[in-house]
Simulated scan of single mutants.
Amino acid sequence: MPPFETQPIQVRYLKAACSSCSVLELCLPIGLSHHEVERLDTLILQRVKVRKGHALYHAGDPLHSLYAVRLGFFKTSVLSVDGREQVTGFQMAGEILGLDAISTDRHACSAIALEDCEVCPIPFAQLQQLSQALPSLQHNLHKILSREIVRDHGMLLLMGNMSSDERLAAFLLNLSQRLSLRGYSSRALVLRMRREEIGSYLGLRLETICRGFTHLRDQGLIHIDGKHVEILDPEGLKRRVTGCQNPGSE
């Protein structure tokens, strides 16, 4: 069986592909008029299902489309010179995959499904043409690219100035905020990624990640049950990140 399968949308649903989507307000069509969304709809002729553990694309593949994540979680990663995986990000519903290929027309990283996922492919050449006709769509594309740059800067801050526990706290807070925007609980998190993958993303060893979860649990900030993490004290986590925690409160 192929690593992913396409599911053509019935003709009667073509006009509602984006307009009826549950993550419309987080994705590329955000802020577009109904007419503009309909024009974007015409580019999305099928949805693609990607099974857990399989790749949507690999590093080095040519750029054909950008992919709006409709359901599920992905990780993006590259291989180091010695063959080790370096996780570069985690993407969820409402976010765009494939932006890494715009500058060179080839993907710089691989996108792997962390669970069964569904994406909407947007052919890039046609998207460019449509964005020239719709300044609001072009503006949205620029905003998404800018958001990726800001996220990269935030990652550099994590890697350079924060302790291991602070990095982990910042990671959980970021995940909490993004899930909250999608209507999910900001406190009850299900980690789709393995501890090793979190460590790779944060630049920490597996044992350091495990100790970090234990430290945050022992401080009463979180409760852990396998992949399930409950944030018990969001403000306490924020203080860990900002370095403003009162030592006497521990």
Results as ranks from 00 to 15, higher is better:
102 I>Y: 02
183 G>V: 10
53 G>P: 00
23 V>C: 00
81 V>Q: 07
231 I>G: 00
132 Q>H: 02
69 V>P: 02
144 I>L: 15
9 I>W: 12
81 V>P: 01
89 G>Y: 09
175 L>D: 01
203 G>Y: 08
116 D>E: 12
213 F>D: 11
211 R>E: 14
190 V>P: 00
158 L>S: 14
156 L>I: 12
13 Y>K: 00
239 R>P: 03
75 K>H: 00
166 E>D: 10
201 Y>K: 02
205 R>W: 10
40 L>P: 02
236 G>S: 11
147 R>V: 08
48 V>I: 11
125 A>C: 07
42 T>C: 07
62 P>Q: 07
191 L>T: 07
50 V>G: 05
184 Y>W: 05
150 V>N: 08
122 I>C: 15
159 M>N: 13
162 M>Y: 12
132 Q>F: 04
180 S>V: 06
124 F>M: 06
174 N>W: 09
242 T>K: 00
213 F>Y: 14
100 D>T: 04
58 H>N: 12
194 R>P: 02
12 R>E: 11
137 L>Y: 01
196 E>S: 15
2 P>T: 01
188 A>W: 05
125 A>Y: 12
244 C>N: 14
150 V>T: 12
69 V>T: 07
143 K>H: 04
27 C>V: 07
20 S>W: 15
134 L>H: 09
208 T>E: 14
160 G>R: 10
41 D>S: 15
14 L>R: 04
192 R>A: 12
14 L>G: 03
143 K>R: 02
76 T>R: 00
